[in-house]
Amino acid sequence: MNGENISFWEKLGKIDRRWIFLIIGLVVFIPIAFGLRMTVHVSPAVKSAYDTINSLPEGSVVMISIDYDAASMPELQPMLKAILRHCFDKNLKVVLINFWPLGLPIGNQGLEEVAKEYGKVYGVDYMNLGYRPGDIAVMLRMGTEIRSVFYGDIKGTPLDSLPMMKNIHNYDDIAVVVGLEAGSMGDAWVQYVNARFKQDLILGVTAVMAAGVYPYLQAGQIKGLIGGLKGAAEYEKLVNHPDFGHIGMASQSWAHVTIILFIILGNIGYFMERRRKRGL
């Protein structure tokens, strides 16, 4: 009996990794294909982000920074859409800005899609500044005058010809900056814009980065934190508009359970093998 067990664990330890890929693939795919859903609980960090935007008076300006590209789209695009829905629902003005050039079409796509849902008008209710190289230098100069770095919008239209931009010159005219981050720009927003200009910030980050961003939240340097697809699903729940975040949560949860089982099995296998080698 003992010999059979050892043989099983030994076989398990040498299993072709492609079987694991297949199992994970199926576990992720089945909930998507069958439309399975799971309950989403809202965390204090996401609630805080929501409350910050929710407390803004009508007509306030929210700047959303698109600092990601297609590789992080599944996590950050649902956040963008949920936040835009919240902003447009509350009649807030939205200014999009891009520090990742490859994020330019992605951010614009999300903006136009949600603006159309709410019947918002470009230049009056929302606008897109586009992309400028220079990262931190651009952030710092916007503290004095946005026009010193953005001569026009994404299409080159002069900023002063857009009605909503007439009274928007620097961070004093922006209520909250929301940074959707897949890289180091989030740190720059905190360390330069929040520290120097006392600008209120919310960060929406990929799950990989979330653990590293929590200290900013604990220190009060950011008003809220939306982490990964789970964070996006939480925000979707708060704005009462389930979308891709909700679709992904069942797959995410089942994939996590499967991975935990694999880790447990792998550890049992390791200890059984070690025991066998020691001749116990």
Binding site: V28, P74, E75, V208, G227, G228, L229, Q252, A255
Partner: peptide, 16 residues
């Protein structure tokens, strides 16, 4: 843990 979550999210995005 967050990294695993992120990678699975990317897979979800592609499979969806």
């Amino acid at each position: 843990g967050y990294t695993v979550m992120a990678r699975i999210s990317l897979l979800i995005g592609r499979l969806d």
